[in-house]
Design a protein around this nucleic acid. Sequence first.
DNA 1: GTGAAAGCGCTAACAC
DNA 2: GTGTTAGCGCTTTCAC
Lengths: 312, 312
Amino acid sequence: MNNSKPVRPELREKVLRAVEETGFQPNAIARSLVSKETRIIGVMIPDISNNFYSNLLYGIDSVISEFDYSMFLAISDEAVEKERKYLRLFKEKQLDGIILSSIHFLEGHSQTLHEIEVPVVVTGHDLHGYQIPTVNVNNVQAAYDATAYLIGLGHRRIACISGPLWDPPCGLDRMGGYRKAMRAHGLPIPEGFVAEGDFTAKSAYEAAKRIFEEQERPTAIFVATDLMAVGVLNFLHDEGIRVPDDVSVMGFDNLEIASLTRPMLTTVHNDPYMYGRAAGEQLLKQLRGETVERMSTVPHDLVIRQSVKALV
Amino acid sequence: MNNSKPVRPELREKVLRAVEETGFQPNAIARSLVSKETRIIGVMIPDISNNFYSNLLYGIDSVISEFDYSMFLAISDEAVEKERKYLRLFKEKQLDGIILSSIHFLEGHSQTLHEIEVPVVVTGHDLHGYQIPTVNVNNVQAAYDATAYLIGLGHRRIACISGPLWDPPCGLDRMGGYRKAMRAHGLPIPEGFVAEGDFTAKSAYEAAKRIFEEQERPTAIFVATDLMAVGVLNFLHDEGIRVPDDVSVMGFDNLEIASLTRPMLTTVHNDPYMYGRAAGEQLLKQLRGETVERMSTVPHDLVIRQSVKALV
DNA sequence: GTGAAAGCGCTAACAC
DNA sequence: GTGTTAGCGCTTTCAC
């Protein structure tokens, strides 16, 4: 049946017929026990209701399913405890490879990662000092580019709403890129011009409210994720502040929603689907025994829509 | 280790210490081979990038993970061939239970479902004539209620953009509820007032464009999914037609996006998370050997926001 | 209480 | 080419 040996045609016929008649289906569990291979990839994400991660999954699935791997999905809910539990489970279930996205426990629990004996790819974290391959966008550079674009359009008073600090890529890095760009152009960052959101549109709505209570309002605002940018857009809409005439808004991610808002969101393209594909490909390479780069960076670029305007 | 037998405390100590020292981890594959249980649930959905399904997954995961089941995810991409492949895989992998969402192959390939020997729950399809438990909203009734609400507000010329016909719940059923409500109130349905979308915002944008080319424009429009309703909202915005002053828009699903649009979308609450929870609970019941109702209906209700206005 | 042995369904290695 | 067997790592059964 597995074509592992040459067989006489008539015998093959007979076997195939028997299979047909009895409705025989192989037991993958027993097979895995001896072959030491499950053809299942474990994927861990913090939050599936977030469009970013669901598209990441889509990207991963699209490449691994091509090679007859399937997906074991673990949702950690951002709980370190669950992350460790699932990591243990991944090992017990003898999964062939693991993709970890935006995990929390890195600091302090790093040893757990070393104990894993199967190929791993980490995404959403710069993992300096590890031998584990990572897939990331250059968040600092992307945020820098976005801010520099705003500056190039004549904006001087630019505010920033970052992601939460516990998520370094969306918090530290994107905020860092913004600061770097401002500094590089000799622009001041008034204290009230930076705020931290928690990924929800609501948190950004509130943050924008605080920013716009400042004496001097910004003419542009860089928001670390599209979903939060929608929150900002909504705040401005509700206040009767026009976008982009009164204030420009720059997002980050280029989620589906970015092209559904009015005005449509100018944003940084950071396609989680391509992200997932890259992570999947890195993992497959390892599975095939090929060597992989320690860090792969997926390219980003600016998507110019309607929410940003040049200052005259 | 499994506490299957009473043991002398000192021996237990010794074993536990050995486990600690050697870093022993049980092999779930070998265990499953003899126990005939994997504690894995197979979940099949057509499209993970769709927020509806990712929230469905979230709901499923939230109940099964509580009972130490995990999720094997299969994305069918709406391809019947893949659906059958994964169903076979589910069986080979000896998964303990299966949740099928919005599958396509039902008609004509029904026997495949009967061959499954593990508990199954189907969602997104009314499966009349099967013994398989289903979890659904009453789409006809919900669409009826939404339309009747519009009528109660004084609207007479009401258009409808349904889901694709290959998806009975969003296509046939929601359109059916609309027609039923119109008929019940003695209102005509001009030919140009009904259109079929394909779930994308873009398809609804185009459908709305066609509807608004009619001689007599509608005063309200019922759209079978929120994402498509956003497409309609955007068309109206781009045309300078005011919502809800010139035309009212009613959505369906109550996705996150419904509260992020301006005006905020009045819609039918059809929480995929609760949907997923219900499906997970039905499956767990079967797993425990309890009997389950053949059909469970999750409740729907109207969420009144800003996109619908009473006619004076 | 404890240790030994059978066997889950498969693959790989080996004799015929 | 073909049939037989050992053994993957566990649980269960049975004898001690």
